[in-house]
Amino acid sequence: MSNIRQLDPSASPLDYYGYELRRAREAAGLTQAQLGAIVFCTGSLIGQIETTLKVPTREFSERVDAALGADGRFSRLVGLVLRNQLPSWFQPYAEMEAAATYISTYQAQLVHGLLQTAGYARAVLSTRDQGDLDGQVAARLERQRILEREQPPVMWVVLSEAVLHQEVGGREVMREQLAHLLSLQKRQWLEIQILPFTAGAHTGLMGSFTILRFDKDPDLIYTEDFVQGHMTANPEAVKEGSVRYDHLQAAALSVNESAALIARVMEERYGDQPDGRNLA
């Protein structure tokens, strides 16, 4: 008889998910291969998720719910699982981000995580070896679900023009990412402005930051260094961040002008190029 790994369902959300998946599958009288065939994956992947070697995605969880008649159990669990895949120092911020009613962010180098495509997120996360890359990407995309809520937070984003030119993941990934930014411009509660190179010296030169506002709780300001993030509700820090952000918004292009610049960079820098474009 094969040695089946025993899980402690109280060890982590991922262990609990794997334990429950195995229990539900066996209760349905299905082998790993049989369940895999139903949900369009391999039996090996089922086994890896049951033993916590792979992190489940939301799409996988929804298919398992349907296949096992689980009444949304795994779709509910996967949110906890994916949040637990975020770095431990980042999880408190992610919880506050999900509770915010207004998000204002300035990004100097990268597209904000809530606006990243899967390809862009994968390229960013792959610069650091931190275990299961698929799980990290799924966790980052899971954060974006707050923008799909019936009442999403109001989000205002100022991106340095440098973000558009920093080629993350290659030309195809960047073209997809910039196209995604343009598609987001259609959302009622989300605005994107570009701070152009011509703005010169500005109040965001010290780096990226995000301000979170809430209906009943104090505002927060969040910054990151190369090790971890820092979140504070100190009134003076929040006031300083808010003033800096107001200046950045004033110096940035209008929303329509920003969309035009994004579209132009997308076509000129990342569009289809004829052969021999580098021979000049």
Results as ranks from 00 to 15, higher is better:
G69Y: 07
L7F: 06
L30G: 02
A33G: 06
T51Y: 03
S61P: 11
E50H: 07
S75K: 11
T31H: 00
A28W: 00
G43V: 01
E62T: 14
F74R: 02
T57V: 08
Y16G: 13
T42R: 00
F60W: 08
P9T: 03
F40K: 09
G69P: 12
A37G: 02
C41S: 03
P9I: 09
L45D: 06
V64P: 02
Q32I: 09
R25W: 00
G69H: 13
D65G: 14
R5N: 12
A37E: 12
F74G: 07
T57H: 10
L53P: 12
Y19F: 14
S10N: 09
I4W: 15
V64T: 03
A24T: 04
S61Q: 08
A24M: 13
R22F: 01
R23M: 05
V78Y: 06
Y17A: 00
R22T: 06
E59I: 15
Q32V: 09
A37S: 09
T31G: 01
G72H: 05
L14W: 04
L35K: 05
D71T: 11
V55I: 11
I49F: 06
P9M: 05
T57F: 09
L21W: 00
D8G: 02
G47A: 02
E59F: 13
G69I: 03
L68P: 09
R63S: 11
L53S: 12
L77A: 14
A24E: 05
L35Q: 01
L30C: 04
E26M: 06
Q34Y: 10
Y19Q: 00
I4K: 14
L21A: 09
R5M: 14
D8I: 10
K54F: 09
Y19D: 05
A24R: 06
T57R: 12
S10K: 13
G47M: 01
C41Q: 02
I49K: 01
G29E: 01
L45A: 12
E20Y: 04
T52C: 08
S12H: 07
D15E: 12
R5H: 15
R76W: 07
E26L: 14
L53H: 14
G18C: 11
V81W: 00
T42F: 11
L7Q: 05
E26V: 04
E26G: 05
A11K: 03
Q48F: 12
A33P: 10
L45W: 11
Q32A: 10
Q34H: 12
V55Q: 00
I46V: 13
A67Q: 07
L45N: 04
R76K: 15
L21P: 08
F60V: 05
I46G: 02
G36Q: 01
R58P: 14
P9D: 02
G79M: 07
L45G: 04
G29K: 11
L68K: 00
R63K: 15
G72C: 08
T31D: 04
A27I: 05
L80A: 14
K54C: 06
D71G: 15
